[in-house]
Computed example of a mutant assay.
Amino acid sequence: MKRITTKAFLLATAIATFASGAALAEEFNLDALIEAARAEPAINVYDSTGKIVEMAEKFTAKYGVEAIGTKIKAPAALEMIIREAQAGNVQADVSIISDVPAAMAQLIPQGFAESWVSPALAEHIPSEAQNPLLVVSSANIIAYNTTLYDTCPLTNIWQLTEEEWSGRFAMQDPLGKPSYTDWFNQMRTYADDKVRAAYEAQYGKPLETEYDSATEAFVAALAANGPLLTDSDSAAAEAVAAPGQTEPFLGLVASAKFRDNAGAGFSLGLCKGVDPIIGFMNSGAGLMMTGSDSPNASKLFLHYVMTAEGIAPQSADGKMSSNRSVALPDDEPSGIGEYVDQVLAYNPAKGEDDWDTRQDWQDFWRVNYAR
């Protein structure tokens, strides 16, 4: 596969984004792509969810192009991709990286990987989700225990900084989960005015703070209130809604964990209408490796996962496609589809800044956290 420069790639992406969707769709020939893909070696596809195995199997059955799906966490995938590229021995062909800032900082600029958007689907994908291509977004949302509460007891995120919820809010540790520091940075960038307004709505007076932003004031106060820090969404969900709970906890968990209501007898409820947001999105960037021996099969897979059929195994867990014509299934357990406008979306336009400020946010959290 011909290696392209970062500048050339960005130019190509800009053309794909801003040119006429109808013209691009007319030029794109899916049948020709399928035929070319069938002449190439099998592809290896990585993702941080086990659902990638099922997705690859269904892709193979649909197109007759062999794909092998492997579950691998983002840090390990990033390291593997970089080492393979540096050694000139590329084994991965496609990877859905759940750490978008790292992909933007470590893979694309160095020419190890590139983004590609199917021209047949580009008109349904917002421009901000095309560079790089955001395949899917998972909502991390505030949840409560429906057995202990009739409705969510939270109406404003600033309440999480109050004595009532001291030590009784479960969330993953930002020191070990980069998506949380990304959330802090995205909130400061895109929703700081809303965080400030929420403070005034809660306390009836303007926010006065030593910090440069309302977001920093909120994060400092949240850390000082001693939330229960976990190493997984599963542990946070268990703290909130496992059977037999008597201590009322709130928690920030992935929408996928709501499937445990049926599978494990949990009682997770979605906190909707919380001012100004009910959670944040963590997105996965779909990238193809520039050294792949199967560039057409890689493109075909990226086309496939941007369709309703291709992303269906993840949609069942409340993970949302960037293809706006693809809806969540009616029986998705969290109900997040109705309240997605209350979730802070991830915007990769600030991805490099999210990467650059991670250590700063981790230090900020470490200094303010009350153990």
Results as ranks from 00 to 15, higher is better:
residue 4 I to D: 11
residue 13 T to R: 15
residue 14 A to V: 09
residue 14 A to T: 14
residue 14 A to E: 15
residue 15 I to R: 13
residue 15 I to D: 10
residue 19 A to S: 15
residue 20 S to I: 04
residue 21 G to W: 05
residue 22 A to E: 14
residue 26 E to S: 13
residue 27 E to C: 06
residue 29 N to P: 06
residue 30 L to A: 06
residue 35 E to L: 13
residue 35 E to Q: 15
residue 37 A to N: 08
residue 39 A to P: 04
residue 41 P to K: 03
residue 48 S to M: 03
residue 51 K to A: 13
residue 51 K to I: 04
residue 54 E to P: 00
residue 56 A to V: 07
residue 57 E to T: 09
residue 58 K to R: 15
residue 59 F to N: 02
residue 60 T to N: 03
residue 62 K to W: 03
residue 63 Y to R: 09
residue 64 G to V: 05
residue 67 A to R: 05
residue 71 K to W: 07
residue 72 I to Y: 04
residue 73 K to Y: 12
residue 77 A to R: 02
residue 80 M to C: 08
residue 89 N to W: 07
residue 94 V to R: 04
residue 95 S to G: 12
residue 107 L to Q: 09
residue 108 I to N: 01
residue 109 P to V: 11
residue 116 W to S: 04
residue 117 V to T: 14
residue 122 A to W: 02
residue 129 A to V: 02
residue 131 N to Y: 02
residue 131 N to T: 11
residue 135 V to F: 08
residue 136 V to S: 12
residue 137 S to E: 14
residue 137 S to T: 14
residue 138 S to I: 13
residue 140 N to P: 00
residue 141 I to E: 01
residue 148 L to T: 04
residue 149 Y to W: 12
residue 154 L to I: 09
residue 154 L to N: 03
residue 155 T to L: 05
residue 155 T to V: 12
residue 159 Q to V: 06
residue 163 E to G: 02
residue 166 S to R: 15
residue 168 R to N: 12
residue 172 Q to Y: 01
residue 174 P to S: 11
residue 178 P to V: 07
residue 179 S to R: 11
residue 181 T to E: 08
residue 182 D to P: 00
residue 184 F to S: 05
residue 188 R to W: 06
residue 191 A to I: 04
residue 191 A to W: 05
residue 192 D to M: 08
residue 198 A to S: 12
residue 198 A to D: 01
residue 200 E to F: 04
residue 207 L to T: 07
residue 209 T to A: 07
residue 214 A to F: 04
residue 219 V to W: 08
residue 219 V to Y: 04
residue 220 A to I: 05
residue 226 G to H: 06
residue 232 S to A: 13
residue 233 D to W: 01
residue 234 S to C: 05
residue 235 A to H: 11
residue 239 A to Q: 09
residue 242 A to W: 02
residue 243 P to M: 06
residue 246 T to M: 07
residue 249 F to Y: 15
residue 252 L to G: 00
residue 257 K to D: 07
residue 261 N to R: 02
residue 270 L to H: 05
residue 272 K to C: 01
residue 275 D to W: 03
residue 278 I to G: 00
residue 282 N to I: 14
residue 294 S to H: 06
residue 295 P to Y: 03
residue 296 N to A: 12
residue 298 S to N: 09
residue 304 Y to R: 01
residue 307 T to E: 08
residue 311 I to Y: 03
residue 314 Q to R: 15
residue 317 D to R: 02
residue 327 A to W: 08
residue 340 V to P: 00
residue 342 Q to C: 10
residue 342 Q to T: 11
residue 343 V to D: 07
residue 346 Y to C: 01
residue 348 P to G: 05
residue 349 A to S: 15
residue 363 D to A: 14
residue 366 R to D: 15
